[in-house]
Design a protein around this nucleic acid. Structure first.
Lengths: 339, 339
DNA sequence: TCTTGTGTTGACATCGTTGTCACGATCCGG
DNA sequence: CCGGATCGTGACAACGATGTCAACACAAGA
């Protein structure tokens, strides 16, 4: 397979390389007849422009970066899936880069990457989307950025998010509607802004219902299964248990489910549990978790579109709709608990 | 941030660009004094060579492709994590590409990608590592390939694997050692060669122990939770249940766990369950799953090294060690079941 | 008919780096 | 002390595309 270059196409079509360039880039000022002739040759020779040459001569790179904190969770995988699909649609490619703040020279490493690969844009996921120094670095390098679910400095870049607060309120209302009054809450990693928003939504709903939430009903987790276990143990270990637990994500909800099971507490008969994210495990769990579906792949896809399709000027923020997913882990509170 | 080029470095160091190029590429024939002087300037100016220019002028691209079938599973995420880390160590970048055979023009799409981005190499994961037409395509494009856990045509490319068969044998021996005689098996997706190897390892061990495995104790799954549920239901739905179930991966083992729970079968007291992979869910499950740890990140990292560090000639195949992880889902069979 | 303008095209330089090759300096053995 | 090998270095031309600008064709208006 000797490589087909733009010259080959040009020669065969009887035009100059520049004209071929115009055709493949969809520029105007090419007669329809010529355009067609060139396209025909492009197809015949299966010509594909070399991305390196393009990147060198123009500024474009056809490479979009997806920057991660920990690239292993299901959340990240969801985002990645959505991003890849849209990238392919727009004939770009996705470069996945870990951003590891524990490394002393992480900024330098990242700067090196940015200078080596002039990325067409970068998508920042939580929680790194809220690191000011990272935003500074990217700004300094003139890299277009779209953030997913940012919590701070919303004016700094375009972003895609969902309304975590409203979703949490709605989920809480669901529990309240079932008759629950004694609802505990397991908070997520406070550096993730979504964790804060969810807490606020929960608080909103409880306040609106005129129910106070005592401190002993609020536990701190960090979104991990492990901390979920600890929090749930604290909530369910004594005789004084709530009738429902709102965990800030599915993983901690699952942990709560496991702890409930260990203690012989029936879900949802004695205890309702709700998660957040609609991760795969929410469906795998038994009973299946009532949760909020986050449009993760869609958010990532939208972010790619903003970066690549949007042209030069980045458009404003986008908010995507969530949806409540009521499954089997939530139900009415046990009769004796109703006051 | 105006860009620093090799010329700037050369000018400041009082040498030609070519010499700078030699230094940053670690070529010989440069006097130590000059080398140091250049390196000093490189550091001062924070110079990083432009990957596009490098890719254009040499053949190298510093981009490694990780090709996936379904990029969403935990298995894939493990591989990706290992690959990314090693890429970074070798100052390369990872491009993740889905290979979707359901698209009619998937070959053309992939060929386009290969021609646009002259990848330094490609890692093929199961099950696509066993697609002959994909291997043909890559060979045609002269792209170095390393496969992970391939099952067929082992002579075609270098590869990294673990001994699934031996691991399955060992895991089966663990169950046999606990006293189990009536062990059921849930097979994995037959297009994954690992599924076949695990079945063979299981068969080996059972045969060696002189125990016949009746057909009703063998179920077909495809590695998915869903098929695991169906298989487990078939095995546990009747009164005639085995004392142990060997599921071909953790996801199906988890499904089995769920089905057992629904039927009120205690694990491991009445039924032992073992998985395979040591996925995250194996630790999350309750009881935690006895399983085999696959060195997935390590395999991916090794693959990257073979591709990038190995230079021109690809080295031979590598086999990485697995390890048995005995947790809480396996135990001795119930007394009455012992013959 | 001569401008002027608009649309179409190609020549040429350029992006930043590396491959090739030639040149001078240094080293060695005879 | 000389000739050839080796080492260190730089000039120059790629690599494959696109940006710039000039040239040309042709239509419309003066």
């Amino acid at each position: 397979m000797s490589t087909v270059t733009i010259k080959d196409v040009a020669a065969r079509a009887g035009v100059s390389p520049k004209t071929v360039s115009r055709v493949i880039n969809g520029e105007e000022h090419v007669r329809p007849a010529v355009r067609e002739a060139v396209m025909k040759v492009v197809t015949e020779l299966a010509y594909r422009p070399n991305a390196f040459a393009r990147g060198l001569s123009s500024a474009r790179s056809f490479l979009v970066g997806l920057f991660f904190d920990q690239p292993s969770t299901g959340y990240a995988a969801d985002l990645q899936r959505g991003a890849i699909v849209r990238c392919r649609e727009l004939s770009h490619h996705l470069i996945v880069e870990p951003v590891d703040r524990s490394l002393p020279d992480w900024m330098a490493k990242l700067a090196a990457t940015l200078q080596e690969l002039r990325l067409a844009g970068v998508i920042l996921t939580p929680p790194i989307c809220d690191w000011p120094d990272l935003l500074d670095l990217l700004e300094e390098h003139d890299v277009p950025v779209v953030r997913i679910a940012p919590g701070q400095a919303l004016e700094r870049t375009p972003y895609v998010r969902m309304d975590d607060r409203a979703a949490a309120r709605e989920l809480t209302d669901h529990l309240l509607g079932l008759g629950h009054r004694d609802i505990a809450f397991i908070r997520g990693n406070p550096t993730h802004s979504a964790a804060v928003a969810r807490w606020e939504g929960f608080s909103d709903a409880m306040r609106a219902a005129g129910i106070a939430v005592p401190a002993r009903r609020v536990m701190q987790g960090d979104f991990s299964f492990r901390t979920g276990l600890a929090a749930a143990e604290a909530l369910l270990g004594s005789g004084d248990i709530p009738t429902a637990i709102f965990a800030c994500n599915d993983e901690m909800a699952l942990a709560t489910l496991v702890v409930a099971m260990r203690h012989g507490i029936a879900v949802p008969q004695q205890l309702s549990i709700t998660g957040f994210d609609d991760a795969e495990i929410a469906r795998i769990a038994w009973p299946q978790l009532t949760t909020v579906r986050q449009p993760n792949p869609e958010m990532a896809a939208a972010a790619i579109s903003m970066l690549v399709g949007g042209g030069g000027s980045a458009p404003g923020p986008i908010e995507l709709p969530y949806s409540l997913v009521v499954r089997d882990s939530s139900g009415p509170p046990p009769p004796q608990a109703t006051e």
